[in-house]
């Protein structure tokens, strides 16, 4: 097909990760392998290595589910130069990162007023609300990426019985702090925004504050456990 010469740019197809161009101001690193937990830790470790490397001209590293983008200033270096430097950097990876996995506990209220879709979800999953909340709080979630809006964590680990397609009609306004699920994922809306996920709880845990340090409380690789504080909330009025 004629577009073979339109698939521009260099790419190191053979390696793992595979390098390709994300436009002319970013390089995309894509890892092979279907085993998601392993791939996720490879991406997280490359993210830390590249962000810590201070390669001149590199502006940001951004993880996705299966890839990592390295944004750069095309006036300071070319994609090919950067790809060389990144390859060298990632080869030095010999030392496995000793970083311990953090577990962050997030209080959540499943009170009816805080969980608009809880009953619907329970019905669709053919379980009681109590079973659903117990299952949810027993689960260990893993933050894969932060995206969509500032501080929104995409978390994997949702039990298969709770995998549901997104709502047919997205809500125009999802309240800040909403704990939500869609597909195989769980997430938390840090601020009010539109959204198509099912809302099953609410938290007052501060996820993103531009004036705080760090600005974002969760990072890719973190483990998350939800703690049921429904009754605490209803007794004290607020969480």
């Amino acid at each position: 097909m004629a577009d073979s010469d339109l698939i521009t740019a260099f790419s190191f197809e053979a390696g793992d990760p595979k390098f390709s161009c994300l436009g002319d101001a970013a390089i995309l690193l894509q890892w092979r392998g279907a085993e998601t937990a392993e791939r996720s830790s490879q991406i997280a470790s490359a993210f830390h290595q590249i962000s810590g490397s201070r390669i001149p001209g590199v502006l940001a590293a951004v993880p996705g589910f299966t890839s990592l983008a390295v944004h750069f200033d095309p006036l300071l270096l070319t994609a090919a130069e950067l790809a060389d430097q990144l390859q060298q950097l990632l080869q030095n990876e010999a030392v496995p990162s000793q970083q311990e996995t953090r577990t962050v506990c997030i209080p959540v209220s499943f009170a009816a007023a805080d969980a608009e879709d809880l009953y619907d979800v329970a019905e669709q999953a053919q379980m009681s609300v109590e079973q659903l909340t117990a299952l949810f709080t027993e689960t260990e979630f893993r933050v894969r990426i932060i995206g969509f809006t500032p501080g929104f964590p995409y978390m994997t680990g949702l039990p298969e019985s709770l995998h549901l397609p997104r709502r047919a009609t997205p809500r125009v306004r999802v309240p800040a702090g909403s704990v939500a699920i869609a597909g195989g994922l769980a997430g938390i809306y840090p601020s009010e925004s539109p959204g198509g996920w099912h809302l099953i709880g609410r938290t007052s845990f501060p996820l993103f504050d531009p004036l705080a340090d760090p600005v974002c409380q969760l990072a890719p690789g973190d483990c998350v456990r939800f703690i049921d504080q429904t009754n605490v909330r209803s007794r004290e009025g607020s969480l």
Binding site: L22, G23, A26, L28, T66, S67, A69, G147, F148
Partner: peptide
């Protein structure tokens, strides 16, 4: 393809 959330850039 797989519909997972992946990096974008202005111009995508």
């Amino acid at each position: 393809g797989e519909q997972t959330s992946e990096p974008t850039t202005p111009g995508t």
